[in-house]
Nucleic acid binder design. Sequence first.
DNA 1: ACCTGAACACCGTTCAAGT
DNA 2: ACCTGAACACCGTTCAAGT
Lengths: 252, 252
Amino acid sequence: MTERGEGALPRVLEIAWGLHEPPQRGPARGLDHERIVRAAIEIADRDGLGAVTMKRVAESLGFTTMSLYRYVATKDELLLLMQGSEEAVPPLGPLDDDWRVGLRQWADHVRALYRLHPWLLEVPPSEISVLMPASVALVDAGLGVMLPLRLTDQERMAVILSLTTYASSYVALERDLAAAGQLEFGSDAMRRLGGVITPERFPHLAPLLAGGGYAGAPAEGAGGDVEVEFAFGLDRLLDGLERLHDERAGSG
Amino acid sequence: MTERGEGALPRVLEIAWGLHEPPQRGPARGLDHERIVRAAIEIADRDGLGAVTMKRVAESLGFTTMSLYRYVATKDELLLLMQGSEEAVPPLGPLDDDWRVGLRQWADHVRALYRLHPWLLEVPPSEISVLMPASVALVDAGLGVMLPLRLTDQERMAVILSLTTYASSYVALERDLAAAGQLEFGSDAMRRLGGVITPERFPHLAPLLAGGGYAGAPAEGAGGDVEVEFAFGLDRLLDGLERLHDERAGSG
DNA sequence: ACCTGAACACCGTTCAAGT
DNA sequence: ACCTGAACACCGTTCAAGT
């Protein structure tokens, strides 16, 4: 009964898409997947993914740890439901008709998503997550923006993937820089580091380090720099797309 | 004695760069950081990061769990040492003088690194890791390739970062696709999925899904596709760089 | 069929003890 | 100062029991 043939959808997809019919018989259920996932997301938003334990989630709902296992097979399943929940995704308004502007808006939206829920960066990735509601909605919107571009479906997917990983990586960078800002290496430490990161061994990086243009001295303007770097890399990718598009327009 | 003022380097950097002098007095040490890190990497390579426990690492060296705490303050410190160890990085040969070719070689090398040690994708990121030996060596080489490009230091770092995250993301994708290949949704499952991922709700993605151009049916050619997509995104980024370079060459 | 309390196996880490 | 055994707090998960 639990395994319905080889062609069945993974349980977690059934749950996420609302296809999972609760059992007919027996006492009324005290919980449901939506409440559990929402509670878990709240905890992760507030205290990080490490704070999401089965115990803490259950108790925040007024139940015992073990009650969760009536709704979720393992903790990994819960994490996947969190990641794929549309609950976590802010609504995505209409995107600009100009593909370049639209893609930038789309990338900004993805970045906002990771900023809103930094724990998304830590959820162990699953091959299933691209089929969860949140991902499907995002991908669909992104594909829509690229309609006027002369690209194959596969290339469109590659762009989506590039932008997604690009945005998420930059949120991770922001987080790391924020943490690094509190490191504040003293001149003592920099001298010690300069003793091993020498111009002889690292001719290109050592000058940067000495000049404060590398990690270790991101004291001022760090936030702004990340902003600039995000736009820079994004523009390079869009430039590349435009060049490809122009070439194909010319030859087609 | 353990805290040497505010200007001191983080302990893990001292260890990684070989600046950590072992205590003079007392019995001979049975272990050293290098052996511990190497043992941990071997376990992670073979059985994944989840298999790296203090117990397993210690026992693989013939010691008890607790002995490790003479060398490493916490498990997180051990993970960081693994990640930043040059042990894990295959030697990087000389790169082509043509910046485009060189950057492609560099990106391939980074990708090879993640393929060799997939657990690198799972190590919780630390702001310190960019100062560890492995990262410093990689970044230095990457900066060297970009010497002929008309870019600021900051832009060069942005490129390095983009390529790194790009390469690592693709290795993650490969891994996920390999896992997804064993999912093999049946026609039953696809029909069920098609009931919620409808053309009405997802006009751009639904046709892809129905046509097998999206996850869920990556049975054949999946590996090859990833190869194509990697080159595609990389070329777009390099195209963008070239355009920027050409523009500046013209106006400078 | 739901929810619960007790129990299990397994973590990382602390501490007091031996040498 | 090294290594060890015992112990602690905390996980995820299983199971038998109550309703």
